[in-house]
Computed example of a mutant assay.
Amino acid sequence: MMSGLEAALAGASSPSWSHRVRAGHDLASFADVPEAAEALVGLLLDGEDTAVTRQTAEALARVGTVASVRLIALVVADADDGQADWMQTGVQDALARKDGVLEVAAVCGQLVRDPEEAVRRGAAEISAWTDDTGC
Rank of each mutant, 00 (worst) to 15 (best):
V21W: 05
D99W: 03
D32I: 09
D85H: 02
A28V: 13
L27D: 03
R54E: 07
D32Y: 07
A10S: 13
G24Q: 06
A37Y: 09
R70H: 08
G90H: 04
P115H: 12
Q110Y: 11
Q88P: 00
L111V: 11
H19C: 10
G42S: 02
P15K: 06
A12C: 06
V63A: 05
D80K: 02
A106T: 10
A96Y: 09
Q92L: 07
A124N: 12
R120M: 14
G24P: 12
A57L: 06
D131I: 10
A37V: 08
E38F: 08
T65M: 03
G109P: 09
R97C: 05
E125T: 15
E38L: 14
A12F: 03
S127H: 10
A7F: 11
A23H: 12
A61T: 12
V69M: 09
Q92E: 12
W129D: 08
Q110N: 08
A59Y: 04
T130W: 01
L71R: 01
T89I: 11
R70I: 06
A10E: 14
A96M: 11
L60Q: 07
M2D: 15
L27I: 12
L40T: 00
F30C: 09
G42M: 00
D132L: 14
A37D: 10
R54T: 07
G11I: 03
P115V: 15
D46H: 03
R97L: 11
T133Q: 11
L44A: 06
H25G: 13
R120K: 13
D81F: 04
L40Y: 04
A128Q: 15
A57Y: 05
V101L: 07
L9R: 09
A39N: 07
R113F: 15
M1N: 15
L60W: 04
A51I: 08
W86K: 05
V112A: 08
Q110D: 08
